[in-house]
Simulated scan of single mutants.
Amino acid sequence: MFNAIVIEKDDAGYRAGLTPLEEAQLPPGDVLVRVDYFTLNYKDGLAITGQGSVVRQFPMVPGIDLAGTVEHSRHAGFRVGDRVLLNGWGVGEKHWGGLAQKARVNGDWLIPLPEGLDARAAMAVGTVGYTAMLSVLALQRHGITPDSGKVLVTGANVCAGLRYQGVVTACGLAQGMDFPASVAPFILRGITLVGIDSVMRSEADRREAWQRIAEVVDTPLLDQISREIGLSEVIDTAQALMAGKVRGRIVVNTQR
């Protein structure tokens, strides 16, 4: 038996609770992972509180990322004891995710945890930091260097204010699906708009992003901006997150 956050939706309504499960209840997959740490993301808050149409089927274990250790594998790329990471691929939405002490997943969704980065630090970075690194890599591929000028991180539509041949990487959904703009910045100043998808990225892109994170991560700083909780605290913390009462990163120690 192991514990998990399970979301149910039936005639009695929508609810999330800490639930004991058996391995036989896990969905299909060729790798069984002992989940060591997880990040509580905004999307997970939406799923747990039922404030967004995140969960596609029920019951569902939420959690869009995880870091842990392989306990069983039928996948050629992973062996028992390997430390692994997972981001995206619909886990926590269509496939049971990381808010559990164990997860059975498709081994193609996993990458090895890079050297120099432990599971807790990886989840303090989480999907948010991984997506940010994908944006950094995209900027570099489009010729942006430190000498190119200032970099702005914002939730607003800034194409009209970029310098000549500036680059925008668009990730996340800060305000809404609409995109009010004109073609003027693109045809008059050569602006480039690059979409950043963190969910379905190739293995090569994932490995590159996480390797770069491992090289530049400031672990003491991560400790300052993150707080660790256990599985039993997740639901209350998710509610606080959606109420705007959480600051910094929330790292879930699933074995606590």
Rank of each mutant, 00 (worst) to 15 (best):
E8A: 11
T19I: 11
E23S: 09
L26K: 07
V35D: 08
T39Q: 13
L40Y: 13
N41Y: 13
Y42W: 06
Q51P: 11
V54D: 04
P62C: 00
G63E: 11
G63C: 12
E71Q: 13
S73I: 09
H75V: 08
G77Q: 05
D82R: 03
D82N: 04
W89V: 12
H95W: 13
A100M: 08
I111H: 03
P114N: 04
G116T: 04
A121W: 05
M123F: 06
T127M: 08
L137M: 09
A138T: 00
Q140M: 11
H142C: 10
G143Y: 09
I144N: 12
T145C: 06
G149I: 02
K150E: 15
C159K: 14
G161A: 15
L162S: 07
Q165Y: 15
G166Q: 08
T169Q: 15
A174V: 09
A174E: 11
D178S: 15
A181K: 07
V199M: 12
V199I: 11
E203A: 12
D205G: 05
R206K: 09
V217L: 06
V217S: 03
Q224D: 10
R227T: 11
I235Y: 02
A238T: 00
A238G: 00
G244K: 00
K245T: 07
G248K: 01
V251E: 01
